[in-house]
Nucleic acid binder design. Structure first.
Length: 584
RNA sequence: GCGCCUGUAGCUCAGUCGGAUAGAGCGUCAGUCUCCGAAGCUGAAGGUCGGGGGUUCGAAUCUCCCCGGGCGCACCA
């Protein structure tokens, strides 16, 4: 990427200057970092390097350092000037043309890099209980997780996506007992969920079990008839596993619809059956990490930075949720992953310390686990925020998607940094106006595509009814673009046209840096931000530069730029798994 | 009380892990379609970066103390 290129040039110059004793007391052993940035004010140049950080070593004024270093920079086609402690670089046309050529040649791989060095990453997200439909929060993790997976792959990681099914424990029994009530209702019995608030909490009274009950009765008529208000273990087991399978199936279907792909669904029940949980306990025991107290088995997690020790085996002999989770994460490491990245809701942040503690206790590096804590989602309806999680007005993800569509839902779920609470404004996400960044970006892509359509099809002048011949035959269009003389972009004597073209090309180049930053910070929202800026630059270019003209050569040059733009928009939207429409 | 996140323009948010005059979108106001999609573009107004100390050449950014908001502190999952 160009930023790196500039930084390298500057580093070489500093080296030369030091060798010639021009930088005061500066030596090369000194620990300094150079940071090339894009200036806020574009009049300064295309890139800027701040050398103030060298002042303390050189014992010279930043301005003098900038001046001296700039004398040792020699490159073709870059203009250099210094202001105070800054060295400013202005790129020549050859650089700009090369950027377009690169994009046209690299196509959908433009922007990718090997930052991840092929590290094997297991990315775990959503991991919901199979006890009901997803709520809106799950939607944020699903959108963000799948976008992050795409992004990390693009940045050179080897990513494996996994969904941990929390299908063990009491909640599954509660689900079975809830289905039981719905089945009895189906059979015509007058029965309902307990009215008492606390008792009701161990049931799932949502309507979504009604269709499941209908299916159950259809598939198990005799069994259903034999059911009474009292359940034996065998019956409960049958009901529970039926409901669980139904819920899981619905969840999988929705994930698919939501462009979220998992390589594997990992069942907690299977984990228990495999004996891995017991094995993991043994391992902890052997390492002296366990002790008994008050009839329970405890893990010395406080040795590794946790606030307090944690119970792994309850007094009744059963394992806690944590026990299975420890075994699960241990298993991930055993499967050979270098990096365990989890997306958890902020309400689980207390678990990070104990999870890391368990990894360390089992003899691995706790830094292998990276937990991304996502702040929660509020639904904003008519300008009023509704807390999610309140059972009454819980909006399911399915409802939300039906209301605003997959694309807009995904985009809005990704648009904010994971650290901030997301206000999801339903009306705004639905709106097909310029308030809505999704449409702004998609429109830019559609507009670019429409230029290509027009370039090769006959049009009619609305005013004169005259036919306008296509600029290029379909067969020659691609060739014309690939072989365009890009210097023509700069020969027109229209200040605004060339300025907007240059700004646009530099924005295209910035994509490399954005991918690097977004991957490094695990921050897919940066792609949204970038897309909006890129779309803005393109719209501006479009207003100042007519693409389809009678000058075939100029048209080809501008089409090449438009092609580069649509390529990068498409690549970016693909990373977000949001559609890039050719017309809207 | 302890822990994590957070407070930046009227609103929603950026701010590249200490650097140039703090940015963008929306909203407001003023312009802009005989021509490739006006779902667009141009311009203007708008901020003592929650408050106060500290660190240094330099702080929205680091540190400490207050104030406000969200989430969590189970032998539930």
């Amino acid at each position: 990427m160009l930023k790196q290129y500039i930084t390298d040039i500057a580093y070489q110059a500093i080296k030369e200057a030091v060798k010639n004793n021009r930088l005061g007391e500066m030596t090369l052993e000194q620990d300094f970092t150079l940071n090339t940035e894009t200036p806020k004010n574009e009049e300064f140049g295309d890139f800027a390097l701040n050398v103030s950080s060298l002042a303390r070593y050189a014992k010279m004024s930043p301005a003098a350092i900038a001046q001296t270093v700039s004398e040792y920079i020699n490159t073709d086609d870059i203009e250099i000037n210094t202001v105070a402690g800054f060295i400013n670089f202005k790129l020549g046309k050859s650089f700009l043309n090369t950027i377009i050529k690169d994009i046209l040649n690299l196509k959908s791989t433009y922007g990718s890099n090997d930052f991840g060095e092929g590290q094997k990453v297991i990315l775990e997200y959503v991991s919901a209980n199979p006890t009901g439909p997803f709520h809106i929060g799950h939607g944020r993790w699903a959108a963000m997780g799948s976008a992050l997976a795409n992004l990390l792959k693009f940045a050179g990681y080897d990513v494996y996506q996994e969904f941990y099914i929390n299908d063990a424990g009491n909640q599954i029994k509660n689900l079975g007992r809830s289905l039981h009530i719905r089945v009895l209702q189906e059979m015509g019995e007058k029965i309902d969920f307990p009215a008492d608030e606390t008792e009701r909490k161990s049931f799932y009274p949502g309507d979504y079990l009604i269709p499941a009950a209908k299916d159950f009765v259809k598939e198990n008529p005799e069994f259903s008839k034999s059911l009474t208000k009292e359940l034996n273990d065998e019956q409960l087991e049958k009901l529970s596993s039926f409901a669980k399978a139904k819920m899981l199936e619905a969840q999988k279907e929705l994930l698919k619809k939501f462009h979220t792909h998992f390589d594997n669904f990992y069942s907690e029940t299977d984990l228990h059956k495999s004996g891995k949980v017991e094995k993991c306990l043994q391992k902890l025991e052997e390492k002296g990490m366990l002790y008994e107290k008050d009839g329970a088995l405890w893990f010395k997690s406080s040795l590794f930075g946790d606030d307090q020790d944690r119970v792994l085996k309850k007094t009744d002999g059963s394992n806690t949720y944590l026990t299975a989770d420890i075994a699960y994460h241990h298993d991930k490491i055993q499967r050979g992953f270098d990096k365990l990245i989890n997306i958890w809701g902020a309400d689980h942040h207390g678990y990070v310390a104990r999870m890391k503690a368990s990894i360390e206790a089992l003899g691995d590096n706790p830094d292998k686990l990276e937990v991304l804590l996502g702040q929660l989602v509020n639904i904003v309806l008519n300008g009023e925020a509704m807390r999610m999680g309140k059972r009454k007005n819980m909006v399911t993800l399915d409802d939300l998607i039906d209301e605003v569509g997959v694309d807009a839902t995904r985009y809005w779920m990704i648009i904010r940094s994971i650290d901030t609470t997301l206000d999801f404004d339903i009306e705004l996400a639905k709106s097909k106006t310029d308030d809505n960044p999704v449409f702004y970006v998609q429109y830019a892509h559609a507009r670019a595509c429409s230029i290509f359509r027009n370039a090769k099809t006959e049009r009619v002048n609305v005013e004169t009814k005259e036919k306008i011949a296509p600029v290029f035959e379909e067969t020659e269009l691609d060739n014309a673009i690939m072989n365009a003389d890009l210097n023509l972009l700069w020969t027109v004597d229209d200040e605004k046209s060339s300025a907007s073209a240059k700004k646009l090309i530099l924005k295209l180049e910035e994509f490399n840096f954005i991918i690097y930053m977004a991957a490094r910070n695990r921050a897919p929202y940066l792609i949204c931000k970038y897309l909006q800026e890129l779309a803005g630059c393109f719209h501006q270019f479009y207003t100042f530069s007519r693409v389809l003209t009678e000058d075939k050569n100029l048209t080809a040059a501008r089409l090449a730029l438009v092609k580069a733009v649509s390529t990068v928009i498409k690549t970016s939207l693909d990373l977000l798994a949001v559609d890039a429409p050719e017309r809207m």
